[in-house]
Design a protein around this nucleic acid. Structure first.
Lengths: 210, 210
DNA sequence: TCATCCAGTTAACAACTGTTCTCCGGAATT
DNA sequence: AATTCCGGAGAACAGTTGTTAACTGGATGA
């Protein structure tokens, strides 16, 4: 049972979302640590002081963006790892899913890649924690696979982190591909590269024991 | 035969280096896109206008920092991949070399990890180009290995990029470990993780063909 | 209906930014 | 010895920043 929000709270959420969207747009050409509060409110069309009704600071807004960005990534990762059938087909599909996600949410992906090692500590920590949770999820999915017989938890988590990092690297490459002159060709190149890298890791996984 | 520089050029290089060092220090707690020109000159103790005698902008300074940071990383990567003997021993040594490099040049590593996907385009490009050159170097070393029989250039480069990315991820983890309460324990944990990940990739490499 | 609440506004603050122009004093050149 | 060169200093510019305080008006709840 969802509590119906008054038109007051609805308006507040609307401008809050407008602030997040505007910030995400501005962050395509700069880092969070240089994002100004006034810059964001100006883009939305509200007074600078309205910002404080929603966020304590731009760093606080950044943490909110982490939730949003990784929230949209959440179902994608599930879908990537879960589907079984042939191993090679799974990799091909995973890479395509990553490419599609980058096309659907380029700004979110850019934000995560940029701020994962960025200059704002709370945001870095938020991303690190969320990625760790993703790795746990991936590990749980990997554990279901019959190919994981004889693997201990530590090794499974190690592999999960390898996959998660590889996904982010691949996503970042697809992002760069979008800024190329020959977009289609570059996307193809990245697809081939990422597929082979994933495949090599999978080969390593298959022969890990013994 | 090195041309002896006049005391004028020597002084210029000295303040230039001071600017680079000060910037590197300031960048431990922020990103390049928020680094102010006056901020840097203030830290060095020179007039703001002196900055223009050395760099066109802070972005220009950033590109210079890329050269410096990857220059110090250059010999390390050579040493990492080159030494042959037992395969497992090579991995163990490589991880230790990375750890030592992070301890020796933490600010450089932080700068590269942060600005690789950062908000300043020319710096991103400079890092990308340099890393591509490193991957070419790694590929050349891998080609010497008898284990690379039957590998084509494309696959070798694919593997080289995998190794380079893995090195950067590992370096970044060692960097984060330094900011932990239990530094020694965390460093140990990262060492074990990175070693196993490298090992898995090597297993994949060994069984890649056929 | 009336008092309360509260998202957003307006105005003002000191502090800061990048950039230009003019100048200085010592090194470099002739 | 005389002249040129040039890294750095100084002052001033318009424009920006985060933050504070007091205020407005429409939604909210009694």
């Amino acid at each position: 049972m969802s509590h119906t929000l008054g038109i007051r709270q609805v308006q507040k959420q609307k401008t809050r979302q407008a602030l997040l969207d505007a910030a995400l747009g501005l962050l395509e050409e700069q880092s969070l640590s240089s994002l100004g509060l006034r810059e964001v409110t100006r883009a939305v069309g509200v007074a600078p002081t309205a910002f404080y009704r929603h966020f304590r600071s731009t760093a606080d807004l950044g943490v909110a963006l982490v939730e949003e960005a990784l929230g949209s990534l959440h179902p994608m990762i599930r879908q990537t790892v879960a589907t079984a059938e042939d191993s090679d087909q799974r990799i091909v599909r995973a890479v395509r899913l990553i490419a599609d996600h980058v096309d659907a949410h380029p700004a979110h992906v850019r934000f995560l890649a940029r701020e994962r090692h960025g200059g704002v500590q709370p945001v870095r920590e938020a991303i690190r924690d969320q990625l760790a949770r993703f790795a746990e999820e991936v590990k749980a999915e990997l554990a279901k696979d019959p190919e994981s017989g004889g693997w201990n938890d530590s090794d499974l988590l190690m592999l999960a982190h390898l996959y998660v990092d590889q996904m982010l690297i691949t996503a970042s490459l697809f992002l760069e591909a979008r800024e190329t002159s020959d977009v289609e060709h570059e996307r193809e190149r990245v697809t081939r590269l990422a597929t082979r890298q994933m495949r090599l890791i999978s080969v390593g996984r298959r022969h890990w024991l013994g």
